[in-house]
């Protein structure tokens, strides 16, 4: 269990992480989502004890990371961003070194190293120098370093960056497997990754948490309209008049002509109405043949963009309000100055 309480990190006057709080329960897979420079890595570095928060508290399995460092760090496996490795060591030597650093007992060390090598799929290259490994394998070595010692909590900072699609699926499956036994926190800016692997998502922007929820709920919450994609054969062009027949329709948008006599439209309604049944009833009467009818899902991507935009808007409003306040203050000052001058006269 990880508890992050009112954590702030400042670099000089810039605030990298601004008073964030959340917790991660045992066995949960949590995704940390945000645009570049949102404070994801900073937060992860604080949870792992690499950097100290300016204020606030981080508790890992009941141990405060800045006070009971040894105990807390023992429970964490960390795969940092940019996969730092010792290139002059072989994969096996590196993992063994990590095992020693993590205080894995001598009598089980060899066995555990072999188990981890097997788990991440490094058997074939275990005796090669890390320098000579491909990016995908380097990533796995780094992940092995995080897994060794069987820590309760595994923290992965952008684990799939720079991999090819096949490697990405492999790493994702590995993370899913890890999620069965460990608490996993991973950061990423790839959204499909999160909706596939994570049970909960924390969206962070400019150092502030703007949403914590399940991927499904986030998608639902940010959904404003139901939209349906429909492909039809419509020789008499009756689609344009459909609005009059079905009152619930808000917009009908022509999307494209498929050049085989069929056309694609996007039909929207408010989110509490499902148009599909009505469309099936009405369209045949209008001599429109349905080829395809599909409800388009809002993706996490949409949710993410909406949330970020919303945060920006709020920022803008705050700024405007501030400026207004500044302006009124300035006006007051000018007034005072004028009054003073007049008094002097």
């Amino acid at each position: 269990m990880i508890e992050v309480k009112n954590v702030t990190k400042k670099y000089g006057s810039t605030v990298a992480v601004d008073n964030i709080s959340f917790d991660v329960k045992d066995g949960e897979v949590v995704g940390f989502l945000g645009p570049n420079g949102a404070g994801k890595s900073t937060t992860m570095n604080m949870i792992t004890g690499f950097i100290e928060p300016t204020s606030g508290q981080i508790i890992v399995n009941g141990n405060d990371i800045s006070k009971k460092q040894k105990k807390a760090k023992k429970d964490i496996g960390y795969m940092p961003e940019n996969v730092p490795l010792y290139y002059e060591l072989t994969a096996k030597e590196f993992i063994t070194y990590m095992a020693e650093l993590k205080m894995v007992k001598r009598n089980v060390r060899k066995q555990e190293v072999q188990e981890v090598i097997k788990e991440v799929g490094l058997e074939e290259v275990q005796n090669k120098l890390i320098r000579n490994l491909s990016r995908g394998y380097k990533q796995r070595v780094s992940m092995a370093g995080a897994l060794i010692g069987n820590p309760d909590v595994i923290i992965l900072d952008e684990p799939t960056v720079g991999l090819d699609p096949k490697q990405i699926t492999e790493i994702r499956n590995l993370i899913k497997k890890l999620g069965q036994k460990h608490t996993v926190i991973l950061s990423t800016h790839i959204l499909s990754e999160v909706s596939q692997i994570c049970e909960r998502v924390i969206i962070i922007n400019k150092g502030k948490i703007i949403a914590i929820d399940t991927p499904e709920n986030l998608e639902k919450a940010t959904k404003e309209k139901n939209s349906i994609s429909i492909t039809v054969e419509d020789p008499k062009d009756n689609m344009q008049n459909l609005k009059e027949k079905i009152k619930e329709i808000e917009t009908i948008e022509f999307k494209r002509d498929n050049n085989d006599g069929t056309k694609q439209y996007i039909v929207t309604s408010s989110s509490d109405v499902d148009l599909r049944k009505k469309l099936f009833e009405v369209l045949p009467k209008e001599e429109i043949v349905i080829f395809e009818l599909k409800k388009t899902e809002t993706t996490l991507e949409d949710a993410f963009i909406k949330l970020i935009d919303k945060a920006k808007e709020n920022d803008g409003i705050e700024k405007m309000q501030k400026e207004e306040v500044d302006n009124t203050q300035e006006n007051d000052q000018i007034k005072n100055n004028v009054e003073e001058k007049e008094e002097k006269k």
């Binding site: 004890g49 690499f50 460092q69 730092p84 490795l85 650093l101 993590k102 205080m103």
Partner: peptide, 14 residues
């Protein structure tokens, strides 16, 4: 420079 200090400093070693 290589970032490996991250590995050292996040390990339980003092």
């Amino acid at each position: 420079k290589n970032g490996t200090e991250q590995l050292l400093l996040t390990s339980p070693r003092s």
